[in-house]
Amino acid sequence: MSILIDENTKVLIQGITGSFGARHTKLSLEYGTKVVGGVTPGKGGQKFEDIVPIFDTVSEAVQETGATASAIFVPPAFAADAILEAADAGVDLIVCITEGIPVMDMMRVKAMLAGSKSRLVGPNCPGLVTPGRGEKSHGGCRIGIAPGYIHKRGNVGVVSRSGTLTYEAVWQLTQLGYGQSTCVGIGGDPINGTSHLDVLQMFNEDPETEAIILIGEIGGNAEVEAARWAKENCKKPIAGFIAGATAPPGRRMGHAGAIVGGEEDTAQAKKRILAECGIAVAETPGVMARTLLNAWGK
């Protein structure tokens, strides 16, 4: 098992003909992911790389292909609409990679998705990977922009707001011989569809996941909320890291959500609360995997 996606998940790509979407669709296909269709309005009937059928609308694509997940690569001005279109078509898992969506748009999208059966991951996220069992984890499900080859199939769940920090943790694990069940990048925006807590709850229920790495950063209280839940409910060892200890207050550190507002959302405060909740906090980002292995008794 894994969470949210597995080797058999059928994936759509919204924005498949844009340069960014096309590049990562190719990489996902090479990784062995079942990309069954693409959506670009006005290009219905064409084929991507002679194999993946392109549709004008998400609902047609879902009807024709039976896809249950969709990755969104459309530009920021059109991304909110793309998310709502996927939800309307009944897609179970909507992964929005797009960076730079206005916050106002995301507030409306979240309000409109309330009560929908679709789960949104992102926006401004690297996506998800459930590694495959082949060489360099080939054969897995890669939705988004993460490098596939750094993964290895195994029993560690990874959840993070940041892309490159996720890769860092995954690569450390893989090099030490420990694979991953699923890696979820929830994105760096202040308003996102899936939280650290949501993912932690899924990892806790997933029999394949035996240990968890939770990576956060300054701003908001999502990591704190997850840690407090974990203290009471999570039976699996967790290692954590919070980026931004040296970030000056009031400045946005790249990610739209990475800004220190009050006293509770600094890296220091979050690390303290994580530790109080029984999470092994990595002293530096260079030792995330080692910190987990220690906590896990490996």
């Binding site: 950063e217 931004g244 200890a245 790249g254």
Partner: peptide, 21 residues
């Protein structure tokens, strides 16, 4: 650095080793 999260973490690790970003 490439990536906002890694860029923040890089500043942190410099500080951790006694430097100042």
């Amino acid at each position: 650095v490439n990536g906002a999260g890694l860029a923040m973490a890089t500043m942190d690790i410099i500080k951790h080793h006694g430097g100042d970003p």
